[in-house]
Simulated assay, not measured.
Amino acid sequence: MSSAGSAGTGSDEPEGIRLQKVLAAAGVASRRVVEDYIAAGRIAVNGETVTEPGRRIDPTSDVVHVDGLRVQLTDDHLTLVLNKPLGVLSAMSDDRGRPTLEPYVEPTGKRLYHVGRLDSDTDGLLLLTNDGELAHRLAHPSYEVSKTYVAEVAGDVARGVARRLRDGIELEDGPARADRFTVLQQRRDASVVQIQLHEGRNRIVRRMLEEVGHPVTRLTRIAMGPIRLGQLRPGQTRPVVGQELGQLMKVVGL
């Protein structure tokens, strides 16, 4: 715990800033409402529940959770959702001059990195962030962050395909299993399906669906953990803030 967290009264400079002021500035609630949260035991600083309204903290080093969700206390970190268009590489530059993520990052004025990747022929949700710890955990297999896709596939999907994918199939680099699989539309020569999994191997969705006899003709990622693409149009971005950011951090234990 930082020394600011245990400071008492006095000037803000050496002893930190009142918790109510920090959380109000972070957009959690008014100072008065934050005082009610403190009295109700809904706020924790560095893992310790705070019950006294006089608590001071250092926003640059202390970690605050409200109702179990972490609050971003400074504007140093930025996390965005991008609806990555088809044909765009999950890279910031390319020697061959192909479209990259750089035009979507440049307006922020920050050095953002993509979390994981989407193939150039896959569109949809891609997270961009300069929060190194968040990016590391989201990409690490041990946290098993789910990813949800909608795919247009060739053929009429038989009833047994869903069970095969949920039970697990064998690929050349090992077994793979879908957490969920749903047929959204059936047509004579094509189908639209939704598949959720927590694996991140290269082209895993395409390989799984091809293995069960339904090659992908269009693939879009619509969710990553609690973050959903929603109505964001291709090429558009939006910030991940507030409770949504807190839920994302909770998934990876932050």
Rank of each mutant, 00 (worst) to 15 (best):
S2M: 00
S3F: 15
S3C: 09
S6N: 14
A7S: 15
G8C: 01
T9V: 06
G10C: 07
S11H: 12
E13G: 09
E13M: 07
E15H: 15
G16N: 07
K21F: 07
V22E: 01
V22N: 06
L23V: 01
L23P: 07
A24D: 06
V34A: 04
E35V: 00
Y37N: 04
A39E: 10
A39P: 00
G41E: 08
R42K: 14
I43H: 04
A44Q: 14
E48T: 12
V50I: 13
T51W: 12
P53M: 00
G54D: 06
R56W: 03
I57D: 00
T60N: 13
T60F: 14
S61D: 13
D62F: 09
D62T: 03
H65A: 03
V66Y: 02
G68Q: 05
T74M: 03
T74Q: 04
T74F: 03
D75W: 02
H77T: 11
L78F: 10
T79F: 09
L80G: 07
L80Y: 08
L82I: 10
N83S: 08
G87Y: 06
L89M: 12
A91C: 04
A91I: 00
M92Q: 15
D95L: 05
P103K: 07
Y104M: 02
E106T: 11
K110I: 00
R111Q: 11
D119Q: 12
D121V: 01
D123V: 00
G124M: 09
L125E: 01
L126A: 08
L127I: 13
L127S: 04
L128F: 04
N130M: 09
G132P: 10
A135P: 03
H136T: 04
L138Q: 10
A139K: 13
Y143N: 11
Y143M: 04
S146M: 03
K147E: 09
A151M: 07
A151P: 11
V153L: 06
A154R: 15
D156M: 04
R159W: 11
G160R: 13
V161P: 09
V161G: 05
R163S: 11
L165G: 06
R166K: 15
D173R: 07
R177F: 03
A178V: 02
R180N: 07
F181G: 01
T182E: 15
T182V: 14
V183E: 11
V183H: 11
Q186L: 12
Q186R: 15
R188T: 14
R188K: 15
D189T: 14
A190W: 14
S191N: 08
Q194T: 04
I195C: 05
Q196V: 09
L197P: 10
R201K: 15
N202Y: 14
N202C: 01
R203D: 12
R203V: 08
R203C: 07
I204K: 13
L209S: 04
E210C: 04
E211Y: 03
V212A: 08
G213S: 07
V216Y: 10
T217K: 14
R218Y: 14
L219H: 12
L219F: 13
L219N: 11
T220F: 05
T220R: 15
I222A: 06
A223N: 09
M224C: 11
P226W: 09
P234Y: 08
Q236F: 02
T237K: 12
P239H: 01
V240W: 05
G242V: 05
Q243S: 08
L248F: 10
V252S: 02
G253P: 08
G253D: 14
L254D: 03
